[in-house]
Design a protein around this nucleic acid. Structure first.
Lengths: 256, 256
DNA sequence: AGGCGCTTGTGAAGACGTGCACAAATCGCG
DNA sequence: CGCGATTTGTGCACGTCTTCACAAGCGCCT
């Protein structure tokens, strides 16, 4: 092995957090790899090949290898990757070695569900506070946490360092909540409200919008429908495809 | 420009559904434009410039223009885009002229919230059925819909043509549900379960995973933290930003 | 009518992401 | 010890997406 100045030294984070700046696309896939790796570990595998892991994560094996190579990963040629080590590596890079505190704002329909979602806890996060602007909701207990008023954010932030804010309010309130989050030092926001947030530089926003996902699927439905109507480029306007839909197969897998 | 054989003829879908095959990246943004356009329409605007619309949708104006140009859009130079017309265009392309029926499988924590989410109805979709595998949940009424057993899927599909299936079950059940959905002819699936689904060609799957989003944010947090540790080029490691944070608005917008 | 300012639509260049295909490395076995 | 089977890591070519910059078109004003 040459020098391989392995970047993050998960074994011991001495004082050189040389985070390689990964391509954004790679970052977006790492969590998927991580989940697949945990599954493999639970199933008792100690090593896994790029082929095996990529299948479990639903990607191309070359892509997987390139992704892992970006974080200076340790695989052994002829053998594969050490599952436990790789988990450690990825968790380190993703900053999951510390359990980050999440503030959830908006305990309505969706927020309520998120508050009860166990995927938070099981994947490296801890809901530190539930907040809502509606006084009638304040005081309600959900999943062991008491809902506080959103104006208490400064207090909450003083109690513990909030890393991430989740906005699950109606669109109309989202921008104001975002401002409040930013004001108390939150620099990462996950926004479920269907609107664009404007935040200062240095603050990351990711958006999840249910309706958008559905509309994208709708487009592909529409497309598939119109394709079965006019099958090919050439002539032959109709194929009818009566009852069955059979094997209309064309490739798929929508890019993220 | 020459003929502008405008693609979808939203006015009248005569018999030529010449869906242009849009770049996937464009498709993913169209819903955002659509939402922004609806806001503008509600605010009374009749036309909007690419600059204005792109700001409302949180993208670059050149990108917006190129996106719209792909669907053979109608803007007027020197004026802008006709809001109502553009809405019609985009809705047509996305296949939203018909209200698509959605089957929601898994009425647990998250599924319950989704069932009550009004963004479904308001943005072109209709929940046609709630399904669950747990017999103790069958019969429960949510938001005016009665939960049926997932094995009734064939019956449900016979009653009305299901376009899209939403999976909100635990990961362990997701693949089986997906198989069942595919078996009754569903060709688009929105998967909230944290696992990879394998489906036949021709079936589109989109995945939404809360924990993944958080982990991506976590990476950027980690990164920002390690950058402030080694201030590097800029200098001034700390800006403190006491109370105020001013209006530095440049949104971040992480690539999807 | 003509000119001027504004805005769209797009060519071209560059950045980014993907996938192939293969050399380099490692293990196990005879 | 050497060889073959296996699997990683990566150079390269290709396709997609983004962004700039500007010509073409449109409306308005004089």
């Amino acid at each position: 092995m040459s020098q391989h100045r392995h970047p993050g030294a998960p074994g011991r984070a001495g004082a050189v957090p040389t985070l390689p700046d990964l391509p954004e696309a790679t970052v977006a896939r790492l969590p998927e790899y991580l989940r697949a790796l945990h599954n493999l570990a639970d199933a008792g595998h100690e090593t896994v090949s790029s082929e095996g892991l990529s299948a479990a994560a639903g990607v191309n094996s070359a892509k997987l290898r390139k992704d892992l190579s970006h974080l200076g990963s340790y695989g052994t040629r002829g053998v594969g990757y050490d599952v436990a080590l790789l988990i450690e590596q990825i968790e380190y890079v993703l900053g999951l070695t510390q359990r980050r505190a999440v503030a959830l704002v908006g305990v309505g329909n969706l927020g309520h569900a998120l508050a009860g979602y166990d995927g938070f806890a099981s994947r490296g996060f801890r809901i530190a506070a539930l907040l809502d602007a509606d006084p009638s909701r304040v005081g309600e207990e959900i999943n062991g946490l008491v809902v506080r008023h959103v104006d208490d954010l400064p207090t909450v932030a003083a109690e513990e360092s909030l890393a991430i804010g989740v906005i699950a309010t109606p669109a109309a309130a989202a921008q104001q909540v975002a401002d409040q989050l930013v004001a108390v030092g939150v620099t990462s926001i996950l926004n479920f409200a269907p609107c664009v947030l404007s935040v200062p530089e240095g603050v990351d926003v990711r958006k999840v919008d249910l309706a958008i996902e559905l509309q994208i699927l709708s487009f592909h439905e529409h497309r598939k429908a119109s394709l079965t109507a006019l099958p090919a480029t050439g002539g032959t306007a109709f194929t009818a495809l009566p009852g069955g839909f059979a094997a209309t197969d064309t490739q798929e897998a929508i890019g993220t």
